[in-house]
Simulated assay, not measured.
Amino acid sequence: MKIFHNEEIYIKNDNFSESIFKENTMFFDIETTGFSPVKAVVYMIGCARRIKNRIVIDQYFAESPDDEADIIAAFAGELESCDTLISFNGAGFDMPFLRSKYKKYKQNDPFSALEIIDIFKELTPLKPLLNLENYKQKSIEHFLGIEREDKYSGGELINIYYEYLAEKDDSLLKLLQMHNYEDVLGMTKLLAILSYKEVLKNLSDIADIAVKPYTAYDGRKMNELIITFINKYPVPKAVSLHDNDNYLMLGIKNSSIRIKIFEGELRHFYSDYKNYYYLPHEDMAIHKSVATYVDNAYREKCKAANCYVRKHGRFIMQYNAFMQPEFKHEIKDKYSFFLLTDDFINSKQMVISYVKHIIDHLFRF
């Protein structure tokens, strides 16, 4: 087994990364000769931790497949002083692979007592917002402006490892070491990508609420509700997401959401329609206790589809029964609306709750 030890000056990137990358935090990445832990070998494990103003990177390398048990044991020893373990797709690949190896060699599982953060997994709900071609580590690094020397993929390095085993060529070893080194070091800089999720999940401060006019694509003059909020942490760069009803823009320090306002008539449907009568001439439903005073010729028993009262006003969409009463065009509509009132606009707490409601719909955290 070879051990490589290097240190880099720790440069504080942002407050969010600083809040996670503490001295009891470990980043790690493994290199293997395949996907199956039964058939493949883990030949390198790299890990990075922080000691004051330095990033310490240790790499454990199997000079032969017989070193596998030694490098996983050495890595387990590194984890004894940590309580948080961070990886990129580690929950999906690295940890299950290593757990299989710890079981094979009858070594203790070192992961059970650790808090696990998988950057790749954390990004899954954010894909509609980031809209990247793919979500590999190198793609995230490119998005964040992180550069690296290594040009190989893990798969391409498998043959290079086998060549090294046959030739013991130091230039081949350097390629293997560099790839793992840059994966681990790059991971320490990837934390900033998770600030988007932190901002969306921890909305707490509304900067402005306003109803403003805009011109629709068909030339109609309409209004929208614009809510501006202050990010808990700065994000790396501005991104946006537009669906049929909302336009969300995350700026570096401040963000906003623009919500279409429907102005016109909608219906509030009563769920207990068997207790109501429908009045065709008035196009509305009334409770049976009142309907007794209406001539039978002017009333009929309600069905679910016509058991409603009509309301004219300004409405905004909701994706479940967030506010009552709720209004729809038709009873089978998937989503409903609620009245946009001055009381709602003037209540920052209600507005914060509504923005969280939209964010939950968009991202399914």
Rank of each mutant, 00 (worst) to 15 (best):
V239T: 01
F338M: 06
K201H: 07
E182N: 07
K237N: 14
Y164D: 08
K103S: 14
C82Y: 01
P128G: 02
F16M: 09
P213I: 06
L114P: 03
L129V: 07
K2E: 10
I51L: 03
E330W: 08
P325H: 07
M249Y: 11
R310C: 11
T25I: 02
I57P: 00
L191F: 12
Y162F: 15
K101T: 00
K334Q: 13
Y298S: 15
H357P: 07
V351K: 00
S87F: 04
L190H: 09
S347C: 07
G155F: 04
F75V: 07
A113Y: 11
L157S: 01
S240M: 10
Y273S: 06
L172W: 03
I57C: 00
Y277V: 08
Y270R: 14
I286S: 04
I316S: 02
F120E: 01
L98D: 04
S336N: 03
S289I: 15
R258G: 08
F21P: 03
K197E: 02
K103G: 12
I261E: 03
Y135H: 15
M1P: 10
E68K: 06
K103E: 14
Y164A: 00
P125K: 02
Y278A: 09
A69K: 15
D29A: 00
L129G: 00
F75T: 03
L225N: 02
F16S: 05
P234K: 15
C302R: 00
A73R: 12
K301W: 07
D243W: 05
E68P: 09
S153C: 09
L200C: 02
I30G: 04
K151L: 15
Y164S: 02
R49D: 11
V239Q: 01
K221C: 10
E141I: 07
H329P: 05
N223G: 04
Y60Q: 01
E141N: 10
Y196S: 04
G154L: 09
N134K: 08
T228F: 05
E68M: 10
V211E: 13
E115L: 09
V42M: 05
Q137P: 05
I45C: 04
Y162C: 14
I259T: 07
A207K: 15
I140C: 13
F315N: 05
V355M: 03
L194Y: 01
P96T: 13
F111A: 03
